[in-house]
């Protein structure tokens, strides 16, 4: 370790770039929207991890006198600031508790489909024609089969649980990443820097990991953040059909669909969990947009120029 350190210091006697985390944080601070988005996501992650521990009891305690209690009324305590649901449980606490299941399903499904889809897409795009054909036809099969029907069949056979829900949703979303990454790979592999690496004798593994994946990744990450909202809503429709998450377990999507009969009389039942879904996806989207710029060396100056402007102000 010390040997490497000394090599680096002797190599950079004149100019040393500042540590990576500081430049990253600086760039995040310069894009105020992305910074706000990052804060919201931190809150959501905090709720998802610690929420059930703190509010489990409050969120499940029924109070029939507080049925459909209107929001912004502090007479029942601060937990009722967002109102109460059809069984008089405080909405705020329920949203916080529900964030764990929601995030587990959405993040799990998106991450699984992103990883598997990208991996298969890279294989389909960069290896033999046969492999590509097999993978693409499999993707076609999944695409042509109605995803909700697939989910119904699978969850009818298997026990409805968070894990199984993740598997089902991940499978139905794989083709999106697969097709996108394959299409991008087919384009990027013809670029000259890939050929230059080939001429130097780089292995396939190296070319894919160093030259193709970094170019393809931003597009896929953007799709993944958009897909986050879709997965949350798909999960809620499965829950609505009775094969997803079952009460007393809760998710944001389930809360939205449970509030639907009361839309005309108590809008807040669906509105607040809906807002939570929107805020989370929007934040992810803003953050992925920022990341796209920050990761691209030729675009990064946009986040660095503001720094000088801010200094001048």
């Amino acid at each position: 370790m010390s040997q490497i350190d000394s090599a680096i210091t002797t190599a950079n006697p004149i100019y040393k770039p500042p540590p990576a985390w500081r430049t990253t944080l600086g760039m995040l601070w310069r894009d105020k929207f992305a910074f706000a988005a990052a804060c919201i996501l931190l809150v959501v992650i905090f709720c998802a991890i610690f929420g059930p521990m703190l509010f489990e009891d409050v969120a499940t305690r029924q109070n029939l006198r507080g049925r459909n209690a209107p929001p912004f009324d502090l007479s029942r305590g601060w937990l009722f600031i967002l109102g109460g649901d059809q069984l008089g449980r405080p909405l705020l606490a329920r949203i916080i508790v529900a964030s764990q299941n929601t995030m587990a399903v959405a993040a799990g499904a998106v991450a699984c489909s992103l990883l598997i889809g990208t991996g298969l897409g890279l294989i389909a795009g960069y290896t033999t024609k046969t492999a590509s054909q097999v993978i693409m036809r499999l993707a076609d099969v999944i695409m042509s089969f109605p995803s909700l029907l697939l989910a119904v069949i699978v969850l009818y056979v298997l026990e409805p649980s968070v894990g199984n829900l993740v598997i089902v949703l991940a499978i139905t979303r794989i083709p999106i990443y697969l097709r996108t990454s394959r299409a991008e790979v087919l384009e990027v592999r013809e670029r000259m820097f890939v050929q230059a690496a080939q001429v130097m004798g780089a292995s396939t593994k190296r070319i894919v990991a160093r030259h193709i994946l970094p170019v393809v990744a931003p597009t896929l990450i953007t799709i993944a953040t958009l897909d986050f909202a879709f997965v949350m809503l798909a999960e809620s429709s499965l829950s609505f059909l009775g094969i997803g998450i079952q009460p007393p377990e809760i998710t944001w999507g389930l809360m939205v669909s449970q509030g639907r009969p009361y839309l005309t009389s108590a809008w807040w039942l669906s509105f607040w969990p809906g807002l939570a879904i929107i805020l989370t996806t929007l934040s992810l989207n803003l953050l992925s947009g920022w990341m796209r710029t920050a990761l691209d060396p030729s675009q990064r100056w946009r986040l660095e120029v503001n720094k000088e402007k801010a200094k001048n102000d």
């Binding site: 820097f193 050929q195 230059a196 030729s298």
Partner: peptide, 18 residues
């Protein structure tokens, strides 16, 4: 590969921008 190397036409494309 070590002995035979290549320089491409368009340096904008032959250098990985990232």
């Amino acid at each position: 590969r070590r002995d035979i190397q290549m320089v491409f036409q368009d340096p904008t494309q032959s250098l990985n921008p990232r």
